[in-house]
Design a protein around this nucleic acid. Structure first.
Lengths: 233, 233
DNA sequence: GTGACTTATAAGTCTGACTTTTTGTCTCTG
DNA sequence: CAGAGACAAAAAGTCAGACTTATAAGTCAC
């Protein structure tokens, strides 16, 4: 996670960003730099820096004589980790979680397949270690410990794929998994079948069995999707 | 494409961004705001805005008493369209194209499957229109016209999936397809088999045949991957 | 060598004046 | 009355300079 509030402009972003991504300002809304600066009690320079950042995320557009206009949702940089975090913290958290889970379902099987081809011995070892950690914490309401190993497992898979675009989705997957454990209904121990699947994926990757690693991971993500459908049909 | 050079800080970014993403400044390199401002002949306020943007892309980190340090590649926001564009324009263009093509291969089949479920009649119509446009321009060195329809086709698929994360990859796919036509070896007419596949995908989506749309799209992206392997084994 | 103190440094912040672009309006003319 | 052109106002953009703050690094006593 990046350091939040590193400076005044960071504080402004921590308020404005969530507000915009939450849809508090409908698309086309016009903000004025000076007014915002007054409202947040910062200088115009600081406010301008904040606006520049929002602009780089395509959340707003700054035009002379007009002001800072909010862009429609369809133009936002929805892959920006900061934007993802803001949206996960806001009202459309469920919708965002669903989008990300669908993305996961597409990416992770492919990543697992590549990992079976490219994973280093170290990564294989790490993978089995994570899987064992999941097994060890799969019973007795040790959800937090389980989560740590689950996140680590998927991070290793994504990194071992050798594709940097996949690797950078590690944070996203972490958010989704953490969200599931912390905010959704997850009082019970994790599904034993899912735990077994993770162990098997680790085996398949170690064995270099591309097709099997992909298929098993597909089953894992299918489970995650199913879980969503049960919670919010 | 976003408007380039919208203001002085934009011009600075157009130079600094490509330089950093091209690896001209190795990770850990320290830049100083004042020096940069002098070098680009802009005021410090402008330079600071540019640095803030680079910081939001995780390309650099600004710390007091130290300066602006370049972050390692692994921390960059590689999904930022701007970063993608910079890297595609630079030296590791081939590497970047490969990464994006692999991402495509994971995402597009899934998107096509969802599109078969969710596409509106209008989107289906648009899709067949695009496919027909591809057929019409598949012979006689009309590569530009073909590209336009090809890009439109994949954009519609991604949008029709109903998943906003998928939809926002439209620009990425457009870049990849354009790159293939413009910069890689592509003197001949497109592969007739690929053209046929597109027509069939349009049919499958219209028919609501999820599995078939997914499988056919998988064949399309597999072809794109194979193409890469031929060009750069 | 270790710890506390000092200092130099570069980012961070604020302010006020000035410039530039753009849009809405107003008028002039056909 | 409509269209073209001139005008004025508004808001972002730019700049320069002074000041503050955090902190890495060096210094000195112990």
């Amino acid at each position: 996670m990046t350091t939040p509030g590193r400076g005044l402009h960071g504080h402004v972003l921590d308020t404005l960003g969530p507000a915009i991504t939450a849809g508090e300002y409908p698309p086309g809304s016009v903000l004025r730099t000076d007014e915002l600066a007054q409202h947040f009690e910062v200088s115009r320079s600081v406010m301008r820096e904040a606006v520049r950042v929002l602009e780089s995320m395509h959340l707003v557009e700054s035009r002379r004589r007009v002001g800072v206009t909010v862009r429609p949702k369809t133009e936002w940089n929805v892959y920006d980790p900061q934007v993802i975090r803001w949206r996960l913290a806001g009202a459309d958290r469920p919708h965002q979680l669903r989008s990300l889970t669908v993305l996961r379902s597409a990416v992770e099987p492919a990543a697992a397949g590549l990992a079976a081809k490219h994973a280093t011995p170290e990564q294989c070892a790490e993978l089995t270690e994570c899987a064992l950690g999941m097994v060890a914490n799969s019973r007795g309401h040790k959800l937090e410990e389980y989560l740590v190993h689950d996140v680590a497992f998927h991070r290793v898979i994504l990194a071992a794929s050798g594709n940097e675009m996949f690797a950078r989705l590690g944070d996203v997957v972490a958010e989704v998994l953490a969200g599931r454990t912390h905010h959704e209904v997850m009082f019970e121990d994790p599904d034993p079948a899912a735990v077994t699947l993770h162990v098997q994926v680790a085996e398949a990757v170690r064995a270099g069995d591309e097709a099997r690693a992909e298929e098993l991971t597909r089953q894992i993500t299918a489970g995650a999707l199913q879980e969503l459908d049960i919670l919010a049909p």
